[in-house]
Design a protein around this nucleic acid. Sequence first.
DNA 1: GTCATAGGTAACTAAAAGGTTACATGTTGC
DNA 2: GCAACATGTAACCTTTTAGTTACCTATGAC
Lengths: 128, 128
Amino acid sequence: MTPESMDLVFHALASRARRAILDIVRDRPGCCVQEVCVHFDVSRIMILKHLRILEEAQLLVLKKAGRKVELYFNAVPIQMIYDRWTSEYSSYWASKLVDFKMLLESEPKKPPPSPSSHPRKLKQHEPK
Amino acid sequence: MTPESMDLVFHALASRARRAILDIVRDRPGCCVQEVCVHFDVSRIMILKHLRILEEAQLLVLKKAGRKVELYFNAVPIQMIYDRWTSEYSSYWASKLVDFKMLLESEPKKPPPSPSSHPRKLKQHEPK
DNA sequence: GTCATAGGTAACTAAAAGGTTACATGTTGC
DNA sequence: GCAACATGTAACCTTTTAGTTACCTATGAC
């Protein structure tokens, strides 16, 4: 898996709306765009854009069928990321987590000292 | 895991730079901000912003130590997402993938018909 | 044919994210 | 003390993303 395609997958998954679309399509294999749209408040055009992003990440397969488009979920990219991460991060999987008890004992963040501590300005600009 | 915290994790992982930071810190537990900065071309301030985002997603733990800040990787959020996804998507894990041979046989995308098919404009705006 | 339905694209606006410089505080070495 | 170093943050600019409306094509029902 190239870094570029991995970027596409992570980016596609970063949006809650897109993850929700994946959930819907996974539960309704072969459903069309309209069926996805009814679950959202945003416009159909926005859903289309999300679908393209998911398609480019190969998380969805779009298959034209007459005037409809059938949607299918593809788990392969997620599996590939999982495979890479479990091997790279294997030593952290449920083992080294013990140390975090120690880390969490560090002092809590201090509140800011005063509301007008250092007022600065780089450049003036027009108010709207 | 709340949808909000899951959003934070996915968003944090969506940036290639932030994933690279995670790789560095995982390989050098307890390293400081400077040690991370030398691996990147962007400014230290940008690295700081990335570190805050990773901290908010609880993928990193920042521990103040004198004038330095020690960085530690935390795999727990990734594990939680993995646990959720493997249970929700279990039926897709290395099984239903067979069907995709059929899906990939659908016709390839047609190239656009002509370069000046429907020139339209909603509103005029100033040229730079 | 014709009309409703499913999908597609261009053009635009607003908000968020990625990036910078300038300047500030707190800690360590000497 | 004081200089050098590590970190923190405000203010700003630029690029990307999320969202819209308007309009177009293609298909299916009749």
